[in-house]
Design a protein around this nucleic acid. Structure first.
Lengths: 128, 128
DNA sequence: ATGGTTGCAAACAATTTGCACCAAA
DNA sequence: TTTGGTGCAAATTGTTTGCAACCAT
């Protein structure tokens, strides 16, 4: 299936399919990019309390449905868990793009359990 | 010279050689690893106010004497500016080791101005 | 003396927690 | 009806700012 089955995701992870959680996952699934909590709050028309957002996102992250992403901003971002990948962060506007490839597969072995790689530069629009 | 000339560093950057700033740079120069502000505070016997630490570190960072490092912890780290390198972060104890090599020099071109790479895994002692 | 520096108090922003209430299963 | 989920208020933590006093140059 193209878009993941939101309800299924929740049920499988042992969560209740509440309107709030469904809405959160829908946003994350629609745009596959990291979202800041306040961004999600806006997208959801402010109908969902930010405390609820934090708790839902952390719960999702604990179950591996969502992934916390640290982009060097002053707040945490969350994105739907996908295959291992990285990000390209525009140093001017903060725009984040997914970088589907990982140039370091050969390093992942031994005691290295994971790694994080972020690029900082100018995105297309800011380069113009 | 082995250890950088702290006084020289300060003067060159246009800073006054105050006891606080000398002390801060001494710690950073002694152990070439990223320090959290509260770690520096301890190392300095709490004799330097954390506000002063923040201001000094940010001032240093602005002049390129020090570099801000984001290690995925919930607080910023600072380290003496060195040649481009990365870090190895123990996912158990948080210990940070320098990784002198950068496996991505070929990617640094075009509009990519910089990148950050952190490894997470088990350090020697935690692996035992 | 003068402009960078410092400390204290207070402001801030991101995130977390306590608790009573509500709703999905 | 049982347990997870939600919102509000309040507490925490990391970091920044205002301002008066201070000291290296």
């Amino acid at each position: 299936m193209k878009q993941p089955d939101i309800r299924g995701l929740l049920k499988t992870a042992g969560f209740k399919a509440t309107p709030s959680r469904l809405a959160i996952l829908e946003v994350l699934a629609h745009e596959e990019k990291p979202f800041a909590v306040h961004e999600l709050e806006q997208r959801l028309k402010g109908k969902i309390n930010e405390v609820t957002l934090y708790r839902a996102l952390e719960a999702f992250a604990a179950k591996g449905i969502v992934r916390r992403v640290d982009l060097g901003h002053d707040h945490t971002h969350y994105e739907l868990e996908q295959k291992h990948h990285h990000h390209f962060v525009c140093i001017t506007c903060g725009e984040v793009e997914d970088i589907k490839i990982c140039p370091l597969p050969q390093i992942k072995n031994r005691t290295i359990s994971s790694h994080s790689l972020e690029f900082f530069g100018l995105c297309k629009s800011c380069t113009i």
